[in-house]
C-alpha cells in the first residue's frame, strides 16, 4: 500500500520551463494562393521549368519547388480569376500548349518554414525547401536544456524565492554568471525607496557595482541575506569572473526572477545585454510573453532568451504584480 507513495518520493518531478519564442518559431506559416497547372507531356518538364523560370520567376517564393510530379507552380494568384491565368502566361511569352488548359488554385507557404514542425505542415501542401537550424529546433521543441541543466536553473530560482522569503518581498532577481555558476548580484523590490527600484533594476545595479560602478547604496541587509543563502545552499558561489576581457554589463549572464519582468525591466535587460532570463510567474504587465516580447523586438541591437514558468508554483506562493 505504501508503494505508490514511495515511488513518488523517489522520482521528484523535474523542473519545467517554457521558452518564449518569436512568433516565427512556432506560429503556423501564412499561406498564399498560387496557380498550379498540369504539364501535358512529362518529357517536357525541364523545358517547361526553364521557360517559366525565365519568363515568370517568383523571387518571393524561392523556398518552394516549382514542380510536383506533373504539376507545376505557375505564379501567385493576384486579383484576376483563374481564366486569366493562361492569358497572363501567353502575354509573358510562355507556350501555353505545354500545359493543360485546366488550371487550379492551391494554398502554399508564403514564407520559408523555420522549424521542422512548420515544414511538415506546409510540405504537404506543396514541396518546400527546408534548412534545419539545430538551435531553433531545440528552442522550439523545448529541449535546449538537459535534466541536470534544468536542475541548475531551478536551483538559482530557489535562491530568488528564498530572497523573497527572507526579505518579505514579492519580487526578487538573481544575476548569475553561468560559466562559473556564481551569483554576481541580486536584488529585490525596493520601489518604496524609488519607483525605479524594481527587483531587476536593483540586481542590475549590483552587477554594475561588481564592475566598480553602481549608483544605489547596497541594501543594508545585503550581506546578511547572502550569508543566510550560503547557509541554506551548500556550495553556493558568489562573485564574478575577471578572466578574459573582464565582465561588461550583464553580457553572458543569466537572470532569475520570480515574476515576469515589466517593460522597463525587460528593456533594462536588453540595455544590459543579458543572455538568458528565467521567470516564475506570468504577469499581466509582463513584457516577456504576456503583453509583449521585448527580448526579441526585431529592430533592437540585442536580444536574449526568455523562459517562463520555472518553479511557477513556488514563485506564485511568494510573488507577483509589480
Amino acid at each position: 500500500m505504501n508503494a505508490p507513495k514511495r515511488l513518488k518520493l523517489e522520482t521528484p518531478t523535474k523542473p519545467t520551463l517554457t521558452p518564449i519564442l518569436a512568433d516565427e518559431l512556432y506560429k503556423e506559416l501564412p499561406l498564399i494562393d498560387v496557380y498550379v497547372g498540369k504539364i501535358k507531356d512529362p518529357k517536357t518538364t525541364s523545358k517547361v521549368v526553364v521557360e517559366l523560370n525565365s519568363v515568370l520567376p517568383i523571387p518571393e517564393l524561392t523556398h518552394l519547388k516549382r514542380v510536383r510530379g506533373k504539376e507545376i507552380l505557375l505564379f501567385p494568384k493576384g486579383d484576376n480569376d483563374e481564366d486569366d491565368c493562361l492569358t497572363v502566361l501567353k502575354q509573358k511569352g510562355f507556350d501555353v500548349d505545354l500545359i493543360e488548359s485546366q488550371v487550379r488554385v492551391i494554398a502554399v507557404a508564403e514564407i520559408p518554414p523555420k522549424v521542422r514542425k512548420q515544414y511538415e505542415v506546409v510540405h504537404k501542401l506543396w514541396p518546400c525547401n527546408f534548412h534545419s537550424n539545430a538551435y531553433w529546433e531545440k528552442l522550439s521543441t523545448n529541449s535546449l536544456f538537459s535534466d541536470s541543466e534544468l536542475e541548475q536553473h531551478a536551483k538559482f530560482m530557489r535562491i530568488a524565492i528564498d530572497i523573497c522569503d527572507i526579505c518579505s518581498v514579492r519580487v526578487s532577481a538573481v544575476v548569475v554568471d553561468p560559466v562559473i555558476t556564481s551569483v554576481v548580484g541580486f536584488g529585490f523590490d525596493q520601489t518604496s525607496d524609488y519607483p525605479t527600484k524594481h527587483a531587476v533594476m536593483v540586481a542590475i545595479d549590483e552587477v554594475a557595482r561588481s564592475q566598480k560602478g553602481g549608483v544605489w547604496p547596497r541594501h543594508q541587509n545585503y550581506d546578511k541575506i547572502q550569508s543566510l543563502l550560503k547557509m541554506k545552499h551548500e556550495n553556493l558561489q558568489f562573485g564574478f569572473s575577471t578572466s578574459g576581457e573582464g565582465p561588461y554589463l550583464c553580457t553572458g549572464y543569466s537572470v532569475y526572477t520570480t515574476c515576469e519582468p515589466c517593460i522597463t525591466c525587460a528593456m533594462a535587460l536588453v540595455h544590459s545585454r543579458a543572455k538568458r532570463v528565467f521567470y516564475g510567474v506570468k504577469s499581466e504587465k509582463g513584457a516577456l510573453g504576456s503583453s509583449c516580447k521585448i527580448h526579441i523586438v526585431e529592430n533592437l541591437n540585442h536580444h536574449y532568451e526568455a523562459f517562463a514558468g520555472l518553479l511557477e508554483t513556488e514563485c506564485r506562493a511568494v510573488s507577483c504584480e509589480q
Partner: peptide
Amino acid sequence: NESRNATRHTEINCIE
C-alpha cells in the same frame, strides 16, 4: 558609462 550601469538614462536619474 560612469556608473557602468546601462539603465542610468537621464530620465531614470531625473525620476529619482
